[in-house]
Design a protein around this nucleic acid. Structure first.
Length: 273
DNA sequence: CGGTGGACCTGCTGGC
DNA sequence: TGCCAGCAGGTCCACC
């Protein structure tokens, strides 16, 4: 579900509800996520105040006083939603967190591909999951030269390389396909065949596209929602993703869908070479 | 080593 | 209407 714009939107919508609030109770209903939830570690968060919420790549970092950090990854179908206390439990609500002075938030995830783990500010840098992440798309380190270093020596398809989190942390299948449309490159192109100039354009376009998607609060097909359970609107602005059979927004061609690896790729056969 | 394909899990859609 | 195959925004690991 969630790529960087959706994760960023979730962080922004969580902040007004959570920052400055104290956790008064945590209940785990289903511990079997991608890795089992460590309930002992969660118990140590009770009584602490949430001081900041941020993200690294697609990971959400909830920082608490005393140096604790609660890390979430939403997987494909995870949601963090804020609710009034005593709202009836729904199917797939796996963690329920009560706040002092009322209110709560929940981790909800039908497919259970998500992650919840607890660490400390000091140990954050050693977390394997975070350590292997590449540059953030908004980091000035994401330059044409940085990306070309990877593309020039790789025989992978460019679409696959763009959503490799070890290279750029934040793109998934939607935005990788969209960037390639905006830069006129076919998703199946082998990375090493791209010119320096094409790669430069891709590197420049990535933050522009993501900024635009964040402005629309992300892309909602079926399950993605922010912390207020609101949908994003960027699905109305997608150029190729999920638009196979429809007209290209730029030329008269019809958008095609192909299977690359185990994921669909979408492109315009005349705008993309 | 780099690259690919499958596994993990539930729910929805479309074809028959 | 019902059933079943195929597919979904992500990540990781075994295998060639």
């Amino acid at each position: 579900m969630p790529e960087l714009p959706e994760v960023e939107t979730v962080c922004r919508s969580l902040r007004p509800h959570l920052v400055g609030r104290k956790i008064s109770h945590i209940e785990v209903i289903e511990a079997r996520l991608r890795a089992p939830i460590d309930e002992g570690a969660l118990a140590q968060l009770v009584g602490r105040k949430i001081v900041a919420i941020g993200r690294k790549g697609k990971y959400i970092l909830i920082r608490l006083d005393g140096g604790k950090v609660w890390v979430f990854h939403l997987g494909m179908s995870g949601k963090l939603v804020c609710l009034a206390s005593k709202t009836a439990l729904r199917k797939h609500d796996h963690i329920v967190v009560q706040l002092n002075r009322g209110g709560e938030f929940r981790y909800h995830d039908p497919r259970r591909f998500g992650i919840s783990l607890v660490t400390t500010t000091d140990a954050l840098g050693e977390l394997a999951q975070l350590r292997r992440l590449g540059v953030d798309p908004f980091d000035p380190e994401l330059t044409g030269a940085y990306l070309f270093h990877f593309t020039r020596s790789s025989h992978r398809r460019i679409r696959d390389l763009l959503f490799d989190q070890q290279i750029i942390a934040g793109l998934g299948n939607i935005y990788a396909n969209e960037v390639l449309f905006l830069t006129g490159v076919k998703p199946a192109a082998r990375a090493y065949r791209l010119t320096r100039k094409q790669v430069q354009r891709i590197a420049e376009t990535i933050p522009e596209l993501l900024r635009q998607a964040i402005r629309w609060c992300g892309t909602s097909f079926s399950d993605y929602r922010d912390a207020d359970d609101k949908r994003g609107a960027f699905q109305n602005h997608l150029r190729v993703y999920d638009r196979d059979g429809e007209a290209c927004r730029v030329c008269p061609s019809i958008i095609k869908r192909i299977s690359l690896g185990n994921r669909s790729a979408f492109y315009c056969p005349s705008c993309q070479k």
